[in-house]
Design a binder for these strands. Structure first.
Length: 140
DNA sequence: GCCAACGTTGGC
DNA sequence: GCCAACGTTGGC
């Protein structure tokens, strides 16, 4: 089981929209960056990810699960990029802001801190546990 | 609204 | 294959 972070602007694709898709989930389309695409290639069904709103909010608002493996992105005319399908698992009781993450020494190496522009990021198990704790999640 | 960081493009 | 120029992203 691996952990990830999916970054999106709430005005483009929000947590609320993701939740409305329910168990069917939604294709994570629109990624046009090889690093991000490679991370999606490495994903397995059942992997979990943080759902992060960039822009005004800058905070982790929910947990998603990978339910569909990497496949071509139909919205990419060049055919170079792919996507995975994700479904909302649940909202976090207490959203974790970028400021809190930056203020936490154990999270100083998170990709979100080091390379905030990468739209799909890997998260280490230690980081995952730490952020879950901050978010008020104990069962993950 | 500005600017730094980064990725991509295109000319050589 | 290198590198300058450009566009985009996202935090501040």
């Amino acid at each position: 089981m691996a952990y990830w972070l999916f970054k999106t602007e709430a005005s483009t694709w929000s947590w609320d929209q993701q939740v409305k898709k329910g168990a069917k989930g939604e294709p994570w389309s629109g990624v046009r960056n090889y690093q991000a695409a490679n991370h999606m290639k490495a994903m397995a069904k059942g992997d979990l990810g943080f759902f992060y709103h960039s822009g005004d909010e800058k905070r982790i608002v929910g947990i998603v699960e990978v339910i569909g493996l990497y496949r071509p992105d139909p919205t990419d005319e060049t055919g170079k990029f792919g996507l995975v399908d994700v479904k909302a698992v649940h909202a976090v009781p207490k959203p974790v802001t970028l400021a809190e993450i930056k203020a936490t020494p154990a999270l100083k190496d998170m990709v979100l801190v080091k390379n905030s522009r990468l739209s799909v990021q890997p998260v280490t198990p230690a980081e995952w546990r730490c952020v879950c704790k901050m978010a008020g999640l104990v069962s993950l």
